[in-house]
Design a protein around this nucleic acid. Structure first.
Lengths: 146, 146
DNA sequence: CTCATGTCAGAACGACTGAGATGG
DNA sequence: CCCATCTCAGTCTTTCTGACATGA
């Protein structure tokens, strides 16, 4: 997504404004995660593990909105660094059960802070009330398109 | 951008909501343009031409926020269909001057309608007042990050 | 036989980079 | 000599598809 100029009639449209702000948001979050040695998928899977508990890779991907193909690579990275444990499921030997470790929980808490900081930076220009309104409206738009 | 589930602590964040709504917006716009046989770059360049008048490809790219490399391909497509004219600049023979044709203007008007329709579909769930508020807030966030 | 799972290779897409040829 | 322009080829990144082997 290019972040440069655009014709006036495009610059005013909600779709363009949403894309631009989303780009800013993505950059802030990616930079924050990057500085913490993580990527978005890392956070998605760690958070999903903490929310739902241990799961197979396929289930993990479904819950966290990550393609099962990309779960493989992400779990590789996370387990190399000791944030998750990948162990064969004794009950169903096709499956790897992925479990959050202590270090993974700590890493997740760190990333939670990073994510919260990115939100603050993103919406720094808006007063509290407007932030809530923005979230409300976006939820409403999203619900309408589900 | 995947449009599926996500962990709860991510689903509530402004950055995630912005990315999701931006994805919806992109899909609506891309589908609309696609049905009209166009892509986003087509609109950007046609609108830029109408806004600023004829220009070299490099200038066109700068004004419209399109990479000079992609301007080449886009102008190829637009000129093949008679929407723009690409003619050598007699004053500076490195340049191609790109000009909007009558057919190009008509096409642009069609795409303006498509774009407006996509905005309506996107924000169908919001009353007029909220739409204006949303646009105002997004502009404010964007200005703060410029 | 069917379906699910984990894995890998690679496609598709969009934005961008590099270099060459031409000309100011 | 240095810089701008146009063009093409190709990289990089993220998301998604297809295929395969294994096992329920």
């Amino acid at each position: 997504m290019e972040t440069r100029g655009a014709p006036a009639r495009l610059r005013g449209t909600p779709s363009w404004l949403l894309n631009q702000t989303a780009t800013v948001a993505q950059r802030l979050v990616a930079d924050g995660f990057g500085a913490a040695g993580a990527r978005r998928y890392h956070y998605s899977l760690l958070a999903t593990l903490e929310e739902f508990g241990p799961a197979s890779q396929a289930e993990l991907g479904r819950r966290g909105g990550v393609d099962r193909s990309d779960v493989v690579a992400t779990v590789n990275e996370l387990s190399e660094r000791g944030f998750v444990l990948r162990s064969p499921d004794p009950v169903d030997r096709r499956r790897n059960v992925v479990t959050l470790t202590e270090a993974g929980s700590a890493h997740l808490r760190r990333l939670d802070g990073v994510l919260a900081g990115a939100q603050d930076a993103l919406l720094a220009a808006l007063p509290e009330h407007d932030r809530n309104e923005l979230v409300r409206m976006l939820n409403q738009v999203l619900e309408h398109h589900s």
